[in-house]
Nucleic acid binder design. Structure first.
Lengths: 356, 356
DNA sequence: AAATGGTTGGCAAGCGATTGCCAAAATTTG
DNA sequence: CAAATTTTGGCAATCGCTTGCCAACCATTT
């Protein structure tokens, strides 16, 4: 391979063979250039590159060689225009700032890349309106959407869902393929854990009122704790940020509960700080359980007991489900619902109930 | 506005006026549909929408109204194909997993969205090869690139840089517009801080050998500490992950230094954990200074003294510089270099040198 | 009233692929 | 060896939008 050097550094607009043969010196080579050099029609090049079986092996190999030589990269724009596909998937998250979504972003990113798709990242700023707007505006630029913790109403979701391929994460609703993280089932573990430590007065610290997960967690908390005859409290709603932790901690402390199950780790970590400031010891005076097991939950002070979720994996599964929807090649109706298992990870923020 | 209801929920393929007037019931409306309904040529619609001054105000208003009514969204593909622009910018980061890049992602995301651009996120997995590959493959799908902590060599960078618009973050090199975070200058503060606490044996804990920032930090550390007559050590390289913290902590402890300045917070946080496990108290036995002030640096245990960087802002500035490069409208040669100021944030991981 | 020059809007040629349709070539079959 | 298939590859229409060029129109100016 005499062109190894060029291949090595990847950029080779100046490849002598290329410029000689293809004519145009500067401009990025098009399918036409490849066709010309290879001595075939553009349609053949197109097929050779994206539908290999439609073309003779030897022709294909020659074309591939020429393409590589010219450093040809098909224009995704042109390809999209004529094929109707974009090979891009948009990921809509309420807040790029939140570590929980980082893990989702990471998961989808990996899986999409593996499948040859591009990820379009959009921050919807916790607003249903922006979500709808993005969905609308990007209709043509993405083949499908992944909505993480969508703020849409069921009706809106249903409407969007039959207009375009999408899958939601942590937002179930009939008709829309979804991956949910099964926090509720781990709620049982969390309550058992607290009960075994002697706690009976427990407070749920609520997240955003528009959050579906928050509603689910609260409901599950309530059902399970009632079954166990515990005394429950609820405070909130609070924004899912560490800075809301102070207010949350104060409110929770006032209830007289000895343990809190907090909507998410971010808020829980914020509470940890405030409680320390106020001299309320964790876990001696108050136990704290978070949700999600985000980055940081293991090294905060004290390390947080939390309901651990396979967040990144949820992102990956969402992508798989979406891709299955986009390319219904191999039979077998793809899943409409994936439930990701969770489990309680006990660290140092929970301990025996104060005996006082 | 009789269509308020439809506008409200954004999706209105079934708008009666729309389907009547434009004919096609289902298919997304094209510029042609708009032109037809408005009674003008497609070229006029195109101009009205993207070059408002080229068209009479009243015509434009009518067109805008029709477009809104039909819920017309131009196809970015088609637009890109004919105009040559994509309205997308690719952000290449070595590792989406690393919180440092989260902040950059966040910054670029915000700024790009504000400017009407889409962000294409790519994880290059710390590999120069993948970086080059992405740069190559996405040539046509992005108007420009932002390289965060590029792993390219100067030569590669230069070559890419004159092929396509790009700006680097934390990777200076002539010819390429760059935003650098001025950690070195804060290195002085860090050393003064440690000196004032009585430390004189200081260890630099190194990051990835291919990292430009790492080289800069090390050099600055060495220069400044020599000037101050301190005894220095160096350990590494280590991968910039908390999991490398154990090895880093062990290596650093073995040097006999009483304080460490660590390549980044991630590694520093990892070290904190290991030191605690080993019973080496921070800061009583060993002081630790990190770099970046990432999410988590303020709530780890103990909270980390670190060289704080305006990371998110760096992302925003990078976008501005890139956009200035893409649209050299208003005169005034745009900056080729932006230096983001840093400062030392003292928390609890540094303290007086052990008197032993 | 004719000349001038600035606006406004239409025509049509691309942009770079994909793909349905068809004919030539190669292969199999009777 | 001819007929029937199957492969292979080219033609040309399209996708939806932008933009250079030009003609019609309008309001001034002389």
């Amino acid at each position: 391979m005499p062109r190894a050097a060029n291949q090595d550094h990847g950029i080779s607009a100046s490849d002598p063979a290329a410029s000689t043969a293809a004519g145009a010196a500067d401009r990025a080579p098009t399918i036409k250039d490849v066709a010309e050099v290879a001595g075939v029609a553009t349609s053949t090049v197109s097929r050779a590159l994206s539908n290999p079986d439609r073309v003779n092996r030897r022709t294909r190999e020659r074309i591939e060689q020429v393409a590589a030589q010219l450093n040809y990269v098909p224009s995704s724009q042109a390809r999209g225009l004529s094929s109707g596909r974009t090979n891009a998937v948009a990921l809509l998250v309420p807040d790029v700032t939140n570590p929980f979504y980082f893990d989702i972003i990471r998961g989808t990113q990996n899986q999409l890349k593996a499948a040859g798709y591009t990820q379009l990242l959009v921050d919807t700023e916790e607003s249903a309106e922006m979500e709808l707007d993005a969905l609308q505006k990007m209709r043509r630029s993405a083949d499908g959407f992944i909505l993480a913790a969508s703020r849409l109403t069921d009706a809106q979701l249903a409407e969007v869902s039959d207009t375009q391929p999408l899958v939601t994460i942590n937002r179930a609703s009939s008709n829309t393929p979804t991956v949910v993280i099964d926090t509720p089932s781990a709620m049982i573990q969390a309550l058992e854990h607290l009960a075994s430590l002697g706690h009976s007065r427990i407070c749920y610290v609520g997240g955003p009122p528009t959050s579906w997960s928050n509603a689910k967690r609260w409901k599950s908390f309530e059902d399970e704790s009632r079954d166990r005859g515990m005394t429950t409290f609820r405070v909130g709603p609070f924004a899912p940020k560490t800075t809301s932790g102070a207010a949350a901690a104060d409110a929770a402390a006032r209830t007289g509960a000895t343990a809190c199950i907090v909507f998410n780790d971010l808020l829980a970590i914020g509470m940890l700080q405030r409680l320390r400031e106020r001299g309320i010891r964790v876990p001696e005076d108050m136990s704290i359980v978070g949700c999600d097991d985000i980055f940081g939950a293991d090294f905060c002070n004290p390390p947080l007991t939390t309901i651990a979720s396979p967040i990144e994996q949820a992102g990956r599964v969402a992508v798989s489900m979406l891709l299955a929807q986009l390319n219904p090649l191999q039979g077998g109706s793809s899943r409409r619902l994936a439930v990701m298992p969770t489990h309680l990870t006990v660290r140092a923020s929970t301990g025996p109930a104060p005996t006082a």
